[in-house]
């Protein structure tokens, strides 16, 4: 357990708490039970997709395709439910399978075609959005199935359903990353691919697997998106991939790969959503929200990069000087 709840979580957790405190101080409505429940709904889709984005990042890749894949999968789901007449219980597993399949496709091209994932997923970002537009002449499809909405809006013991999805998938992801061979191999491939090859790790297979996971988690997000709006649209999920990556980065995942904690991504996603929520409650326009989101990403990475300097500064500010430093002061004086 010590391994999961390690020091890597302290920073992102502190950031989340500080942001929540600030928002709570500026608006009373923030701590309303209604708003908090709304918050867990808001964070759910991006936080679930961010599991995949983060695992790809752990293996030193990047996934830009998830937003467009959400649009494509909601359109396929809508098509199946509304026009093909496939029942919901069959359509949902099919969507999850397709998400994994699309991820497999991207992963194979990336790992075995030796094309950087930035390029393959950028291509997918563009192509998937195009593919989504080929359904229903590019128009959204509404009123899919009355049984769809409870998946998102339903409650169990008074707690919104998405909360349980978050707990389930984050526990699973944390277990995988910290206690399984696959998780260790993902960190190894991200940390040093050349060394991973020489220790007999099948680097390409591991890289491909991370994209399959990302595709699957994107499909989970797509189902929630469809359930939330009871529709499919080629316009859903715009910039969702960037929000998911932002959640990973704010959570402290290194884009160079090999370092980070999956649970910190959840905190990163929460931080971002709390800020957005706070701005919403204070009636800030969406332009301001985007500017603030940009600054948060910069600040999160900056704090990580300047950690040494910051702790040095703190030391000086709060008089925690070492004997060496104090002797310096004496000499200067």
């Amino acid at each position: 357990m010590k391994r999961i709840f390690d020091t890597q979580l302290i920073g992102p957790f502190a950031a989340m708490v500080i942001v929540a405190l600030i928002v709570a101080l500026t608006t009373e409505r923030f701590l309303n039970p209604g708003n908090l429940s709304n918050l867990s709904l808001q964070v759910s889709i991006v936080a679930l997709i961010a599991i995949g984005s983060t695992i790809v990042i752990f293996a030193a890749g990047i996934d830009l395709s998830s937003g467009s894949m959400v649009a494509l999968l909601t359109m396929i789901l809508a098509q199946m439910l509304k026009f093909v007449g496939i029942p919901l219980v069959l359509a949902l597993p099919l969507i999850l399978f397709m998400g994994g399949l699309l991820g497999l496709f991207i992963g194979l091209i990336t790992a075995y075609g030796r094309i950087p994932s930035f390029i393959t997923t950028l291509a997918a970002l563009i192509a998937f959005r195009g593919l989504a537009l080929t359904f229903n002449n590019g128009s959204p499809i509404f009123s899919l199935d009355p049984a769809l909405e409870p998946i998102f809006y339903g409650k169990l013991f008074g707690v919104p359903m998405p909360f349980f999805y978050l707990v389930f998938f984050y526990v699973l992801a944390a277990f995988t990353m910290n206690f399984t061979k696959l998780g260790r191999e993902i960190y190894a491939v991200g940390g040093n691919p050349a060394a991973a090859v020489l220790t007999g790790i099948n680097v390409r297979k591991v890289q491909t697997t991370t994209f399959v996971i990302a595709g699957f988690m994107t499909a989970v997000g797509a189902i929630l998106m469809s359930a939330r709006l009871n529709s499919g649209s080629p316009n859903y999920g715009q910039t969702l991939e960037l929000q998911a990556i932002a959640a990973a980065v704010v959570g402290g995942a290194s884009l160079a790969g090999g370092r980070g904690n999956i649970l910190a991504t959840l905190m990163g996603a929460m931080t971002i959503v709390i800020v957005q929520n706070g701005l919403n409650l204070n009636a800030a326009p969406s332009s301001v929200q985007n500017i603030v989101l940009g600054l948060i990403i910069l600040l999160a990475v900056g704090i990580d990069m300047w950690r040494a300097e910051i702790s040095g500064l703190m030391g000086r500010m709060f008089g925690r000087t070492s004997s060496q430093q104090s002797s310096n002061v004496k000499k200067e004086a």
Binding site: T180, K181, Y187, A188, A195
Partner: peptide, 25 residues
Amino acid sequence: DGLFFNFRASGNVTAASLGGLSRFG
């Protein structure tokens, strides 16, 4: 191509034996 700098000693020591160190993954 030898070390995993993101791992402690343990991750480096077992990197080539993960199969033998795990059961059902």
